[in-house]
Design a protein around this nucleic acid. Sequence first.
DNA 1: CAACTCGCTAGACGGTGTCCAGATCGCGAC
DNA 2: GTCGCGATCTGGACACCGTCTAGCGAGTTG
Lengths: 150, 150
Amino acid sequence: MRLTLSIFRFNLIIVRNSVTILQEHGIQPSAQRVAVADYVLQTLEHPSADVVWTRVKARVPYISRATVYNTLNLFVEKGLLQALALAEDSVVFDPKMERHHHFVDEESGTIHDVPWDKVQVCNIESLKGYEIHDYQVVMRGIRKGARRKA
Amino acid sequence: MRLTLSIFRFNLIIVRNSVTILQEHGIQPSAQRVAVADYVLQTLEHPSADVVWTRVKARVPYISRATVYNTLNLFVEKGLLQALALAEDSVVFDPKMERHHHFVDEESGTIHDVPWDKVQVCNIESLKGYEIHDYQVVMRGIRKGARRKA
DNA sequence: CAACTCGCTAGACGGTGTCCAGATCGCGAC
DNA sequence: GTCGCGATCTGGACACCGTCTAGCGAGTTG
């Protein structure tokens, strides 16, 4: 009973946060958009659009694929997500909006965030002929050790 | 006459170079592979596979799409090309095999090579938990000035 | 010549992402 | 309540990218 109540309140809090975030970014918080936001704004797994669809459908079975794609594009446009084209097969989404770098595990294809201050890029401002809006270091290799980040 | 001869010899030289390069990398220099190599090993435009197909077809109309895809993958496997997944829409190929960085023009989508020593990445060797095989800086922005590189 | 290998071709196929017409929802006006 | 309207959602069609496969032909070996 208490557990149920606790879970119920937990869910409520999550929903309220997503609704608030959407509203703060000028997005109408429809049920489908909130469901997508609940998952994609919390995740660390750098999902592709179809993975998002699968995950969200598990909780809201009646959501359509086109809605998920539209919603993700809307979130990117409104600054809630980054779209990353790092792997060869598809675009993935990352809710971490602070500047950071990426490490691609060549064995599993998984992507890991690398904090901005762990690696420095020097002399980039001295490049002539380019107006650089954004940059990051993309690393490829294999992850050592068995510890999982999330 | 002399011009024709000159052009003819120029073509001969190109062909011989591609043939030699293929052989040096253990690739049978078939007519189709040489045609692909003639274009893709010289270009600076970072073409997608279908662009390669279009370009090569202009000179060798009977080449098939599957052959171009197979040939490009073979070249990547044999170390003649890099495959880059930078843009959102498709993989592009780069014959420049030395380490270098990339700049993506957000207006045109074109990709420019940035020499390795123009930008330095520091502290990357101190990253724990990763065995890094390769890395590069990916920059996005717009190209200033009207001068074209190629 | 037969058997084999290799490369090429054309088309089929599966996955990704977009587009569209119609249905549905939310909400204010009456 | 209900009418109307704009925003949103839906399911399917569509286009594109990359891979796969069956069959063909050329060259090679026995």
